[in-house]
Each structure stands twice: as structure tokens, then as C-alpha cells.
Design a protein around this nucleic acid. Structure first.
Lengths: 209, 209
DNA sequence: ACCTGAACACCGTTCAAGT
DNA sequence: ACCTGAACACCGTTCAAGT
């Protein structure tokens, strides 16, 4: 069975397939954990991929575009499609979970928050998610604008929190784990309380469709 | 009257005094508006100051320290010492004003939010301000932790908002001015409403001291 | 005390050329 | 279609040396 098929392969089987954006982003995120954002260079990334740095420019038109793709990948990790079918759906828990997810994803890798801070609407997936989420908030009594703004506020708060937590961590002044969690949760509950005061039902049973 | 005193001066009178950190930070902030954070190089900054870039390292041990000083300078711009003497002091307006100040300062210069995102407790001035502010919140009924966390949440929200607004602006996808303001104000009011629900008096008259 | 000259070890990016 | 070689125009930082 064709041993010669393997002759051209490098030692690592995964390396044989031609490079694509996805694999580059993956390697870049791995490198990020090692070097931090300031140490993440295209030359080092290329070396990790067994390639010359000029080659990266066939896949991405510049480093910024690569960083945007990394940002998108991180947001995809905490993509949270709404499960509208459940009974006794609790909007508060749902929003809290989504917001925690953004923060946790950011904190899960070195300088993750700085990468996620580049957030911009790339990709259809995130556009669809945002649309579905605002539609849901409207269905429980918020206006279109309120829905948009509420989701925006939660995302801004999550990214802002992770960002500052990582700054303090980088400088060796990290608060205790408990304190970080507590301060984040406090602010989150403030926002959700404010939201709760704008319409009545804390528990919501969706209409059967 | 000593024309010869002027002989050694450059064309710009302000240039004669020896450089100090303050003047360097000032020049750096001016340069930031021209070049953005990514274009802000120590070499270019030195050139603007009429100096060689190596000289900067006598005043700052590295670029990060300079950026921290720039961040502190921006926070000093929106330093808001509490006026505890006024009658009918409205805590809501006071907190809203402080939060808006952080955002406005960040938005007032190119990449201002990215600089302010490095926030860390340098300087006694900001430490005193935070202490005074938490003390005040305690005096109107919050616990020490609630006070700290509430101020932290507002700052995180303000920086997070400005950061994302400037990202969108940089990419030419700026929302209308009205929309930016409206979305920021909406999230701010959510937080303040949540805070209001935690203790009763919306208006507060401080005790005479 | 404050600044320079000169160097070190890097960057991101381009582009003709290879396969 | 995908990658390389080689170059361009930069970086931040160090350090002996100047005044």
C-alpha cells in the first residue's frame, strides 16, 4: 500500500496539507500564549509553521488582518446560540452566561483580552448570533434599540474587565482569584438588575412556536 | 539688557529648559494624535524633542514606563475630586459625570482608550481619589466592597466602551455620533439603576461636618 | 546630570523569482 | 497556487563616551 506516498511527508503528518488561514490562526494563538501580544512576530510565527515570513503574506494581506482573524476565532469560541426551546427559560442566567463566557475566553490565554478588544463585525456567524440575540430580547419586551444597547453594554463590560484584570496580572499585582470574580460578578449583576427594572418578568416561558 | 543671554537659546524658548518626564509625556501625547499608538516610536518622539532616542532612556527605563506615564496623565485629566460640600448632592449625577469623563478623555485623542487601558495604580493622586470616592459611597450606604466594585465596574465599562468605539472609528465603520452616545448612556444608566436598587435615597444631602 | 554615537538584535512588508 | 531570497526601511535598547 504505497509506502512511497509517505516519502514526501515531513516528520509531522499534519504538516503535509497546504497551509490555510485557519491553521495559521491556530498556530498564532498557540504562539500568543508563549510570547504575549508584544512578542508575537510574523517571523517567529512563520518559523513555528516551518515557513518563511514572506509566505504569510499570501494568506493574509498584513499582520492586522491576522490579528483580526485571531480575534474572530476567540469570539467563535464563546459563541452561544440561543436555545429558544427550553421551558422556564431564564433570560438573566442566559445573559450572565454569555457575558461570563466572553470574559473567561479572554482570560483563558495570554493577552486574550487585548486581542478580543479588536472586536469588529467580521464573519457571518457573529452577525447571525447578535441578530438572534437581539430578536430574543425584543420578544421578551425590550425595544430593538434597548436590545442592541444592552448586548453591547455587556460585551463592553466583559472585555473591559478582562482587559484590566490581565493588565494587573501582567504587572504581578493580580488580585486574588476570588476578588477578581467577585468584582466582575458585582458589576455584572448591576447591569442585569438595571435591565430587570426595565421590564417585568424575571422568568420567561417562550411561546410555543 | 543682555542680548547675549539669548545667544545660546534655540529658536524656541521653551526648548532651553532641561527635559523632564513631564515634557516628554506631553510631547508623546501630541505625537500620539499624529501617529496613533502603533506609529509612536521612541525614535520619532526623540526627533520631535530635538534629542537622540538613546537620551530618552535616561528619563524612562523603557517604552512601557513612558506609556504608563501617558496613561496616568490621561487619568489625571479627568480627575474628579468629590465636592462633598454641596447641598442636594446627587450621587447618580456625580457617578455618571465621572464615568463620562473617563470615556470623553479617552475619545479626545487618537488611540486614547488603548493608552488608558493600561490603567494601573501609579501615582498618589489617583489612589487618594479612589479612596475618597469609595469613602463617599460608603457614607451613603454601600459597604466597602460594594463601593470599590461599583467604581471598578464603571471604570471598566467606560474604558471598554471607548476602546470599542475607537476600534470601529479606526476602521471607518463609526456609528453616528448620536448612536455612540446613546448606546453608552444606555449601558451607564443600567449600571446606575442597578446601583440605585441597592440602597434607597436617590437624592442625598450630606451631613454637616 | 544629561546627552550622543554607534552598534545589536530584531521588526513588518514587498517583490521578483522559483516550483 | 503557494512559497522563497533578498532586500528596504524601520524598530527598542544598551553602553561606552562625551560635556
Amino acid at each position: 500500500m504505497g509506502e512511497d506516498e509517505n516519502v514526501r511527508q515531513g516528520s509531522n503528518v499534519a504538516e503535509q496539507a497546504p497551509l490555510n488561514r485557519e491553521r495559521i490562526v491556530e498556530a498564532a494563538l498557540a504562539l500568543l500564549d508563549e510570547t504575549g501580544l508584544d512578542g508575537l512576530s510574523t517571523r517567529r510565527l512563520a518559523a513555528d509553521l516551518g515557513i518563511k515570513s514572506a509566505s504569510l503574506y499570501w494568506h493574509f494581506s498584513n499582520k492586522d488582518e491576522l490579528l483580526d482573524a485571531m480575534c474572530s476565532a476567540l469570539f467563535d469560541e464563546c459563541l452561544d446560540i440561543i436555545d429558544t426551546g427550553r421551558q422556564n427559560f431564564n433570560w438573566r442566567k442566559w445573559l450572565a452566561g454569555g457575558t461570563r463566557g466572553i470574559r473567561r475566553t479572554a482570560l483563558s490565554r495570554r493577552d486574550g483580552a487585548r486581542v478580543m478588544a479588536r472586536v469588529r463585525p467580521v464573519g457571518e456567524a457573529s452577525a447571525r448570533r447578535i441578530e438572534a440575540n437581539t430578536a430574543f430580547l425584543q420578544s421578551i419586551g425590550l425595544t430593538y434599540e434597548e436590545s442592541t444597547y444592552a448586548l453591547l453594554a455587556l460585551r463592553r463590560y466583559a472585555v473591559g474587565s478582562a482587559l484590566q484584570e490581565q493588565v494587573y496580572a501582567a504587572v504581578g499585582q493580580a488580585a486574588t482569584q476570588d476578588e477578581s470574580e467577585a468584582s466582575f460578578e458585582y458589576g455584572l449583576s448591576l447591569i442585569l438588575d438595571g435591565l430587570a427594572s426595565r421590564f417585568s418578568p424575571l422568568e420567561f416561558t417562550p411561546p410555543e412556536k
